[in-house]
Simulated scan of single mutants.
Amino acid sequence: MKGSIRERSPGHWAIILDTPDPASGKRRRKWHSFTGTKRQAQVECARLISAMKGGTYLEPDKTTLAAFLDRWIHHIKAHVSPRSHERYADLARKNIAPLLGGIVLSKLRPAQIAASYTTALASGRRDGKGGLSPRTVHHMHRVLKQALGQAVKWELLNRNPCDAVDPPKVERVSMHTFDLPQTAELIDALRNTRMLVPALLAVLCGLRRGEIAALRWRNVDVTAGQIAVVESAEETKDGVRYKEPKSGRARTVALSSTMIDELKAHRARQAQELLRLGVRLSDDSFVVAQADAHPLKPTSITHEWVRLLGQTALPRIRFHDLRHAHATHMLASGVHPKIASERLGHSKVGITLDLYSHVLPGMQADAVVRVDDALRDAINKRTKSIG
């Protein structure tokens, strides 16, 4: 096995590798293009010969990163949810491909990837109005790293160039929620609107928007005082589909007496409203629905939330932040993080502790005081018993 180089034009070389055909024994030639100095071409030739001998050689391939990403997007469709697939496809085709798509996959280098992130941060918006956020570029990095990891598995690359690239640091955004007085004000402001029950399910039960949109009356047991969260609505370009909750498993959420009373009243109102339309409320009916009992899209909940919140003097927060408010209220009231984690549907208690670490210092101070009081009480009792 041997190799040679041939200059095609100044700075451009052809690397020719001679290797015997395993079947016929005849000599076969493999051609590689290379740009650089003669010395660099000789080093690359030696590297390719070494790769052939070591079994890590890759056949010359002109596949661009853009073409590979299209193949990868098709491949992962069966492995992720439709919404995730849409997100991956958008990031790959609309953010990554415009920056790196023209590069031949086998020639993609860490420096090029790092430079593309810098460009994206400075001028990556598709509308031409500035750069992308560090969080979006971080998502781009995750998608590209996953895609190139598959290229390694398919033996299209020897190594993943993303492994040598650090994505931009994402600063944690301050969490904005409602305290208890603001929560009371919110409930009063939404009292005669269709947003009352969705908001209550978020701020008093910690349900996600998709879980609220998918909740049916058969999953609500006001007698036992609990809700079974078994589905979540996911909105895609093809419409709304119902899937298992985010954590991958169902959970049971205990209801407060306030929530039970509100759900009973809501069901009675909903039944009367539907009866006027000639529709009978059933256990299959959605708890949160349109006036004609058709289910709401998750985005419809958000749009109505923004509209109604804008009519109040309350701070402008996302609908999802009501779930954060519920978690904050629980932890600040001394509820054990494990219980809060189960109620919120987090897969691990560590997620709860990480998300709501801002509440923990107050809890820690409270715990120290309680333990100190108990210790003093024990010391006093012992002193009295000895005396």
Rank of each mutant, 00 (worst) to 15 (best):
D18T: 11
T19R: 09
T19A: 03
T19H: 06
P20G: 01
P20Q: 07
D21F: 06
D21H: 03
D21G: 02
D21Q: 01
P22K: 05
P22A: 02
P22Q: 03
P22S: 03
P22R: 03
A23K: 13
S24K: 03
S24H: 05
S24Q: 05
S24N: 08
G25M: 11
G25W: 13
K26D: 11
K26E: 13
K26A: 13
K26G: 10
R27D: 01
R27A: 05
R27Y: 06
R28K: 15
R29V: 12
K30N: 00
K30Y: 07
W31N: 00
W31P: 00
W31K: 00
H32L: 14
H32S: 07
H32W: 09
S33P: 11
S33R: 12
T35W: 08
T35Y: 13
T35G: 12
T35C: 15
G36S: 09
G36P: 06
G36A: 10
T37K: 11
T37P: 04
T37D: 06
K38G: 08
K38W: 02
R39I: 05
R39L: 10
Q40S: 09
Q40G: 04
A41Q: 04
A41C: 07
Q42G: 02
V43Q: 15
V43D: 15
E44M: 12
E44W: 07
E44P: 02
C45M: 14
C45F: 00
A46R: 11
A46T: 05
R47G: 08
R47P: 08
R47F: 10
R47K: 15
R47V: 05
L48E: 02
L48I: 06
L48M: 10
S50C: 13
S50Q: 15
S50F: 13
A51K: 03
M52R: 14
M52A: 08
K53V: 06
K53I: 03
K53W: 12
K53L: 11
G54N: 15
G54M: 13
